[in-house]
């Protein structure tokens, strides 16, 4: 008797039509945990994209002049902004990753909200201090300094 209840048919058996404005992620209230997860996934994907571009750029290492030109190009303000965003993504991803590790390995689930805000403060400090040179470079570029 017990065994037959274990049969679990695949999901499509009772599927009703899905309507366009059923986009739940838009409709469901976003609290600390869901925000932390969405930002974690976005930052993770952003870092992967960066990594691909970065390794692709390293192709130029085979040629001295091409490499120097590439590095010179990286001083453009758009890359300074990119540098800042990269720091923000990595800092957030690393500290929220630490939060997830503490929750899963040490059972810190009851403290997850406090943990989020504490680590968010640390992350913000790192972004401000570490990102200062990039922002400074962008500002001086546009103010003609």
């Amino acid at each position: 008797m017990a065994v037959e209840t274990l049969e679990r048919p695949p999901a499509e058996t009772t599927e009703a039509p899905v309507y366009e404005d059923d986009a739940r992620i838009v409709r469901y209230k976003i609290r600390t945990g869901m925000f932390a997860w969405m930002a974690h996934r976005l930052s993770g994907i952003a870092i992967v994209i960066y990594l691909i571009l970065h390794v692709w750029g390293l192709k130029a290492l085979t040629d001295r002049d091409a490499f120097n030109a590439l590095i010179a190009g990286y001083h453009a303000p758009i890359f300074k902004i990119g540098e800042f965003l990269l720091l923000a993504a990595v800092a957030y991803h690393a500290f929220n990753g630490l939060r997830i590790v503490l929750i899963d390995f040490l059972g810190w689930s009851p403290k997850q909200k406090r943990l989020f805000w504490t680590l968010a403060a640390v992350t913000a400090a790192i972004i401000v201090i570490g990102g200062y040179p990039s922002i400074y470079a962008v500002v001086t570029y546009f103010t003609g300094g």
Binding site: T32, W37, D104
Partner: peptide, 26 residues
């Protein structure tokens, strides 16, 4: 389970579901 905590937020019995799922993961 990506420790999103929507379940804990929703539970009317205020069960810390994520905490117990983490224990089960370990």
């Amino acid at each position: 389970c990506y420790t999103i905590f929507n379940c804990v937020q929703a539970c009317p019995k205020e069960i810390d579901i994520t905490r117990w799922l983490s224990a089960l993961k370990r």
